[in-house]
């Protein structure tokens, strides 16, 4: 920046050095953008099954709590019927383990009751429930695409 003889007008001059520095800066920004885009490509993920057809309801006796690994869900059969809960802890995503009449997270100690409600933190929200229905040939289906409240049972 220079001030001319009269001292009234400011004349901005772009020196060669400033121009080159500016070009460098712009190309650095442009390349960073490209690199971030390059790194952010979403490769096709190895998905869990969106639903699974299991055995006949009789295979899961009253009071049973069964882990279905293909859909990462617990299938529970109580007095009122069947329901399924996500087995993924709502805190940081560890798979919860079956404890005594409750679920325990091995990572940070969250506890959930069999209806998915938080008994003990750090988890803040309950386990989501998945739809349980019967297939045409009368077998149990767990569908992760349909969220239902755990209070909703498949009564057989």
């Amino acid at each position: 920046m220079k001030i001319d003889n009269t001292g009234k007008h400011k004349i901005y001059t772009l020196t060669r050095r400033a121009f080159l520095n500016l070009s460098l800066l712009i190309s650095a920004a442009a390349s960073s953008w490209g690199i971030i885009k390059f790194l952010s490509y979403k490769a096709p993920e190895e998905r869990l099954l969106s639903f699974i057809t299991l055995n006949q309801p009789q295979a899961y006796h009253l009071g049973s709590v069964t882990y279905i690994r293909e859909v990462k869900a617990w299938l529970i059969h109580d007095q009122e019927g069947f329901y399924a809960l996500s087995s993924t802890c709502t805190h940081l995503g560890c798979t919860i383990n079956l404890g005594e009449e409750r679920f325990d997270c091995p990572c940070h100690g969250s506890q959930f009751d069999l209806a998915g409600r938080v008994l003990k933190g750090p988890a803040a929200s309950p386990l989501p429930g998945y739809q349980v229905r019967l297939s045409d040939d009368g077998r149990i289906v767990i569908d992760r695409r349909v969220s239902v409240p755990p209070s909703q049972r498949l009564d057989i």
Binding site: L48, R69, K72, H91, N97, P106
Partner: peptide, 22 residues
């Protein structure tokens, strides 16, 4: 997809795991 028996962070991050529990 397995259920872990128990899950511990690598020893140099166990303190973070302990913090996360609370």
């Amino acid at each position: 997809n397995n259920i872990p028996e128990d899950a511990t962070a690598p020893w140099f991050f166990i303190w973070v795991q302990q913090l996360l529990g609370s």
